[in-house]
């Protein structure tokens, strides 16, 4: 911003006799305005990314499905997601008022995808399913106060583009794989199978997309296949190890294998 002002000053000093120079001064203002807006959105998006990553981290600390703290953690995650929406996405939405949002998509895409990853991860932990992008769009739509007298209140939003949504879901699978590995440590073997099933479902759908013209999807599908393979290997391991003892002893044995299962919280 300081730099911008310095440049503005500089522009004042330049001879105005030339028609071209006069025109280019106008262009400079336009470009600056666009770049400034872009910069502001990028900063907001970066904050969204950081906080979303933290929320994901928080959800990973859920230790056991019947843990008393599970609900507490999920509540906290939900609250923080709400804050992201109200504080950050509303600010982005304000920047986009009267603009073509696609012009600034690159500025907020990273944040949006990471937020979707966090949001769907949260929802999956709550209900074992993920929300439609239309649902998420509702959370990123805000009532706008009537700014000028007489103007009527309207809605503003940060658009949840289906492609961005789906790329976020693609990343979600990575987190679910991690969750699955953690679940083994916690002895939640059923959760592993459930996660594996869900991952297969998502992978199946991604494998069915025509990714022509959507380079990122191709790459994500590939990574997802690897995540899925890891998850399947976890389930496989549970099965072959489980085979050696009666099922009801298995989870217990896994608990035994950790010295103080209850004090482990925070480590996983």
């Amino acid at each position: 911003q300081r730099l911008r002002e310095a440049k503005d000053e500089q522009r004042q000093l330049i001879d105005d006799s030339s028609e071209i120079i006069k025109t280019f001064k106008q262009f400079a203002l336009q470009l600056d305005a666009k770049h400034d807006r872009h910069e502001r959105i990028v900063k907001l998006s970066r904050d969204v990314t950081i906080e979303s990553k933290r929320i994901i981290f928080l959800i990973h600390t859920i230790n056991s499905s019947n843990d008393s703290k599970k609900e507490q953690i999920l509540d906290q995650a939900n609250t923080r997601l709400k804050q992201v929406e109200t504080n950050l996405f509303q600010a982005i939405a304000k920047e986009l008022v009267g603009e073509d949002p696609h012009q600034f998509l690159r500025a907020f895409s990273a944040g949006l995808q990471e937020y979707i990853e966090a949001k769907t991860f949260y929802q999956f932990m709550v209900s074992a399913s993920i929300p439609h992008w239309n649902e998420i769009q509702k959370d990123l739509t805000f009532a706008q106060e009537a700014t000028e007298e007489g103007a009527e209140a309207s809605e503003i939003q940060t658009p949840v583009l289906p492609t961005e949504y789906m790329l976020g879901v693609g990343d979600l699978t990575g987190e679910l794989m991690r969750r699955c590995i953690n679940c083994v440590g916690m002895g939640e073997l059923d959760a592993c199978k459930q996660l594996c099933g869900f991952l297969r479902q998502v992978y199946r759908i991604f494998a069915g997309f025509d990714t022509f013209g959507y380079k990122e999807f191709g790459r994500k599908t590939y990574v997802m296949r690897q995540s899925l393979a890891k998850t399947e290997n976890v389930c496989y391991t549970i099965q072959v190890r489980g085979s050696e003892v009666p099922k009801h002893l298995l989870a217990q044995a896994i608990h035994m294998s950790m010295d103080n299962p209850d004090e482990d919280e925070g480590f996983y």
């Binding site: 590995i181 083994v184 440590g185 391991t237 190890r241 050696e244 003892v245 002893l249 044995a253 896994i254 035994m256 294998s257 950790m258």
Partner: peptide, 14 residues
């Protein structure tokens, strides 16, 4: 590595 070691402990325990 963590997982691998836990499996060994599991084997031993069981």
């Amino acid at each position: 590595d963590v997982k691998k070691i836990e499996e060994i402990v599991y084997d031993v325990s069981i």
